[in-house]
Design a protein around this nucleic acid. Structure first.
Length: 321
RNA sequence: GCUGAGGUAGCAAAGUUGGUCAAUGCACCGCUCUGAAAAAGCGGCCAUGUCGGUUCGAUUCCGACCCUCAGCA
C-alpha cells in the first residue's frame, strides 16, 4: 500500500501542493489528505493555524473532523474543541484509521504536515509506553521542582533517570507517570503497516523561509486573526493550552492591551522563525526525505513527476490499467 | 551656546566601593525529543564611544574630544 508523505517547515505550501496532487491523480481514484498538524486539529482555530488557504478563490466546505477544500478532502481538521486534551497517540489512532479507509476506498493517501512527532508516530518510527496521561498526577507533580522530580524518578526508576534530561519538568513528569501507572495493561492502538512511503520535503534557504513566514503572519494579522482570537476568548477558551502556543498567545497579549499590534506582529514573526528552526532540526535527521526547494521555479512539476513515478511503480499500476 | 543626563553585544538592559570583570531578555545559530510537541528543555555566538592621564592593574577614577537625549537660549 502506498502513502505519500509531505513534510517541511511552516509556510512552504505543503497543503496547497498536496491539494493539487490529489486532483492531478484523479485517474488513480484521486487523493485525500490527512493533516499531521498538532494545532489544526482544534476547532475554531483556522486563521492562526494556517487552515485557511492563502488563495482567496478556494471553495471550502467544513465538516466534522475534516474540510473539503476545492473538492479535496482534508482529514483531521476540527477534531476537538480547544479545551479538550489531545495527544500524539490519539492522533496516530485517528490518522491510521483515515489512511486505511482511503486504501479500502481506492484513494491515494497524502499525509501532510509539519508536526514531526505526529508524523513519526503514524509511520511507526517511534513507540510509546502504553500509559495514558494521568492529568491528576501531573498536576500534583507540577508542584515539585525539577530537582525534586529528578530525585523522585531516580528512586522509582534509576535506569530511566540516567537517560532523561534532568532539567525538563515535562519529561520528568511523564517518566514518573509511566513508572507509577505502568502495569495498567496495554491499550491497543491502531498500527499502520506501510509497505512503502514516499517522503517529500518542502524547504528553501533560511531567508526565504523566514520571509514567507513573515508574509503569512502579516496576511493573517490583516485578515481575521484578531477576530478569531476574540471569538475564541468569547467561547471561553482563553486559558486553554492551544491558546498558549505561538501566534495565539501574542494575539491574546495584544487584545489584553499588554503589547501593541506592532509588537504582536514582531513576536509572531520571531516565534515562527524559531519554530521553523526546530522543524528543520527535526526533519534533518530523516534521511528518507527527498527535499525540494520551493523557491525554484518548477519545483511543483518536479514533485509531481516524482509522485507519479512512485505511484506507477509495482502494485498500484494495475489499478490504472 | 549654556545646563543636566547618558554612551556596555544586532537591539534592550544590569552590575563592578578599581582586581582574569561582564548578569539577563530578545534576535541569530546549533541541539534534544517515546501519549501536552506550534509543547517542554539544553547549548552556542557577539559588548564596555574615542584619545590621553592616574595606577602594579581601569569597564569602573580624572581630563579632553565625539555622539545621543532632555531643558534653557
Amino acid at each position: 500500500m502506498k502513502l505519500v508523505v509531505i513534510v517541511g517547515p511552516t509556510s512552504t505550501g505543503k497543503t496547497s501542493l498536496a491539494i493539487k496532487l490529489c486532483k492531478r491523480f484523479s485517474a488513480r481514484g484521486g487523493g485525500e489528505i490527512v493533516s499531521a498538524d498538532s494545532r489544526q486539529i482544534y476547532k475554531f482555530m483556522d486563521a492562526g493555524t494556517g487552515k485557511l488557504p492563502l488563495s482567496k478563490g478556494s471553495k471550502i466546505k467544513k465538516g466534522d473532523g475534516y474540510w473539503i477544500i476545492d473538492g479535496v478532502y482534508v482529514h483531521l481538521y476540527d477534531v476537538v474543541e480547544p479545551d479538550r486534551k489531545f495527544s500524539v497517540a490519539r492522533f496516530k489512532d485517528a490518522a491510521t484509521k483515515e489512511i486505511e479507509s482511503m486504501w479500502r476506498r481506492g484513494k491515494v493517501p497524502f499525509l501532510v504536515g509539519g508536526t514531526g512527532f505526529y508524523l513519526a508516530a503514524v509511520l511507526g518510527e517511534t513507540e510509546f509506553p502504553r500509559v495514558p496521561p494521568d492529568w491528576k498526577l501531573r498536576k500534583e507533580l507540577e508542584k515539585l521542582s525539577t530537582g525534586e522530580l529528578f530525585e523522585k524518578l531516580k528512586k522509582l526508576d534509576p535506569k530511566r533517570a540516567k537517560t532523561i534530561d534532568p532539567k525538563n519538568p515535562r519529561r520528568l513528569i511523564r517518566a514518573i507517570e509511566v513508572v507509577l501507572n505502568a502495569p495498567s495493561g496495554p491499550v491497543p492502538l491502531a498500527d499502520l503497516s506501510v509497505a512503502d512511503t514516499l517522503k517529500i520535503g518542502l524547504t528553501a534557504d533560511r531567508e526565504t523561509l523566514y520571509r514567507r513566514a513573515d508574509r503569512w503572519a502579516e496576511a493573517i494579522v490583516n485578515d481575521g486573526l484578531l477576530d478569531e482570537v476574540q471569538d475564541l476568548i468569547n467561547r471561553g477558551y482563553k486559558n486553554t493550552p492551544p491558546m498558549k502556543g505561538i501566534i495565539y498567545q501574542a494575539a491574546v497579549g495584544h487584545l489584553d492591551g499588554k503589547i501593541s499590534q506592532e509588537e504582536m506582529l514582531e513576536r509572531i514573526k520571531f516565534d515562527l522563525h524559531g519554530y521553523i528552526r526546530r522543524q528543520l532540526t527535526w526533519f534533518k535527521r530523516d534521511k528518507e526525505i527527498r527535499w525540494f526547494d520551493v523557491s525554484e521555479p518548477k519545483f511543483g512539476e518536479k514533485v509531481e513527476k516524482m509522485v507519479e513515478s512512485y505511484l506507477e511503480s509495482n502494485s498500484v499500476k494495475t489499478v490504472n490499467q
